[in-house]
Design a protein around this nucleic acid. Structure first.
Length: 567
RNA sequence: UGGGGCGUCGCCAAGUGGUAAGGCAUCGGCCUUUGGCGCCGACAUUCGUAGGUUCGAAUCCUACCGCCCCAGCCA
């Protein structure tokens, strides 16, 4: 054990951290950072990064993780997003303590450093247009061409850069570029832009600046200033690493290590910021927190727990291979968490009226029900029973197939915590033939759900007393997309082609037991045999609205599917 | 046709020269007042392919194949 190499059994990022600790590379420090750009809401992919960065900090004595807003582009960034990001990181259960930073805090320092690079002949003001710069950059297989402004004198560069900062030039007319190598096979090294002119006011610095630093010129130096040890980002930044290193070296400043890992992908889900914004702005969903959205706030409203999301992030691991995780994995983590903590309750989504013929008309009684069989400390409650009930329509079949062992004519089943009932008749609508009511008898000796004679029953159904039930709205969600990988499109296809038209189903008249009367938005329950549900903020004192967080595993549905396929 | 990465079970993912962990999914069985939960069992003679080195290779070498990323004054 003790002679194992440091990092054994850990993911490769944690292994690097462990190795660095073992060799004392950073004087025993572990400092990470989560650096979102405040131009959108956080999604489950960010959760992976958050759990990685904050997780590593937590796991190591004295470690810390900074929350830093990468706010270098005033055109796209807004305060609304910084607020939501902080809320979501906190909700996920992480705390950045005093370490809240903004890249814009470093604008002065970055400006000084730019002057330093100009003085050392490592940066120059370039007057080429956007189109010219693009043309000069060359292509993947052809080298670039040096700008005709590349050899300006230090004095001229200094003067021009100062005038850029003073607002004397038009947007797009000039940029500051690093003088690296137009022949570099890595395009990012072909004299990358450091500063561009943007006459936009910034959400934090206001109108102080009209030149703004680019990501590459900002990120590494921000890490450096904060004493970050491990700068963890996603794979697409791997090719930026030489530039990250170049700036730190050219500036001769503290140089953190950038490490790249594969971003999260989920089946039946799109996680690109661009797509998410379009879903919201095009009204394809009802806002960032629509329970169908893979955003943190969407999951929150849907009823997911931060524990489940963290557990998911822990289980999927961290590696460098592109991957797409199955949504079932996430749902498994969710069910496992909710199973332990969600109180059980009875709710009928698609009501079918049942009249117990031999039950006295005006009688009602209170039956004992367990709140959570997984946790005795959650206690018990009373549920009212009476002559007229509702059961789930799908729990009855007039002509049941093999293996269907719920209610059918002449068959006896148990009503959970109540009585055994036997179906004696079916009432249909004269015109449509639709079943509108079941006639049943009950066995008074089976009160509570057990038969004194030891008689067994194949099924236990959930139910609700019609006279006592609360009418509620229930929203059922399915995958937002019909395609496993909606990002993988053929020529001419649009991701919108794969939007699932049935991703939201509203059930306006469901019935739940009266104990739910005081449920508050955010409260989570298991509707026995149906799934986990949570109270939506759209609820009113008159009518509760529930979101189905996730259905229970449904073995019967799998059997039905198999039977269908067998035909 | 340049450069940077990556390829281990349907999906994730351990494995760092000594003879393929684990989770999800799936399939059996047990249990059950949730067809839920739980429990038991099955599930890669094989690690992109082909050679080579070695007593021994998923791990080392060579070649090939496939996938991803890079030509924003976005991050």
């Amino acid at each position: 054990m003790s002679n194992e190499r440091p990092g054994a059994g850990l993911d490769f990022v944690r292994a690097i951290v462990a190795e660095d600790l073992a060799t004392n590379k950073w004087d025993g420090r572990v400092v990470t950072r989560f650096p979102p750009e405040p131009n959108g809401y956080l999604h489950i992919g960010h959760a992976k990064s958050i759990c990685l960065n904050f997780g590593i900090a937590q796991e190591n004595e004295g470690g810390r993780c900074h929350l830093r807003f990468d706010d270098t582009n005033p055109c796209k960034e807004e305060q609304e997003y910084v607020d939501s990001i902080m809320e979501d990181v906190r909700w996920l259960g992480f705390d950045w303590g005093e370490h809240l930073y903004y890249a814009s805090d470093y604008f002065d320092q970055l400006y000084e450093w730019a002057i330093q690079l100009i003085k050392e002949g490592k940066a120059y003001v370039c007057d080429l247009s956007v189109e010219e710069i693009r043309a000069h950059r060359g292509t993947l297989t052809e080298t670039g061409t040096e700008s005709r402004y590349r050899e300006r004198s230090v004095e001229e560069n200094l003067e021009l850069f100062e005038r850029m900062r003073a607002g004397e030039f038009e947007e797009g007319s000039r940029v500051l570029r690093a003088k690296i190598d137009m022949n570099a096979p890595n395009m990012h090294l072909r004299d990358p832009v450091m500063y561009r002119i943007l006459k936009a006011s910034h959400h934090r610095t206001g109108d102080k600046w009209c030149i703004y630093p680019m990501y590459d010129y900002t990120h590494g130096q921000s890490d450096s200033l904060e004493g970050i040890t491990h700068s963890i980002c996603t794979l697409e930044f791997e090719i930026h690493r030489p530039l990250y290193d170049w700036y730190c070296e050219a500036l001769r400043i503290y140089h953190p290590q950038q490490i790249e890992f594969a971003r999260l992908n989920l089946t039946y889900t799109l996680l690109s910021k661009r797509r998410l914004i379009e879903l919201v702005t095009e009204g394809l969903v009802n806002g960032w927190d629509d329970p169908r959205m893979p955003t943190i706030c969407g999951f929150r409203r849907r009823g997911y727990t931060p524990e489940a999301i963290r557990d998911f992030c822990k289980r999927i691991g961290v590696a460098k291979a592109d991957s797409i995780n199955e949504i079932e994995q996430l749902e498994h983590c969710l069910r496992e968490d909710l199973n332990k903590r969600a109180p059980r309750v009875m709710g009928v989504l698609d009501p079918l009226r049942v009249v117990i013929e031999n039950y006295p008309d005006d009688q009602e009684e209170e039956l004992d029900a367990i709140n959570n069989p997984e946790d005795a400390s959650m206690g018990a409650r009373k549920v009212p029973f009476s002559k007229v009930l509702y059961i789930e329509r799908e729990d009855f079949m007039e002509d049941p197939p093999r293996k269907f062992y719920r209610l059918a004519p002449g068959r006896e089943v148990r009503l959970r915590y109540a009585y055994f009932i036997t179906c004696t008749g079916v009432v249909k609508d004269e015109n449509t033939g639709e079943i509108v009511e079941l006639r049943c008898t009950y066995d008074p000796d089976t009160r509570g759900g057990d038969a004194p004679d030891g008689r067994k029953v194949k099924a236990t159904l959930h139910w609700v007393s019609a006279a006592h039930a609360l009418e509620t709205e229930v929203r059922i969600y399915e995958h937002l997309f019909t395609k496993e990988n909606p990002a993988d499109l053929d020529e001419g296809e649009d991701w919108r082609d794969y939007l699932n038209p049935d991703s939201l189903q509203v059930l306006p008249a469901c019935y739940v037991e009266p104990s739910l009367a005081n449920a508050k938005p955010g409260d989570r329950f298991q509707f026995e045999r149906k799934g986990y549900f949570c109270v939506d903020p759209d609820s009113t004192p008159e009518k509760l609205v529930f979101n189905r967080t996730v259905a229970l595993r449904d073995t019967w549905a799998n059997i039905q599917k198999a039977q269908q396929q067998a035909k």
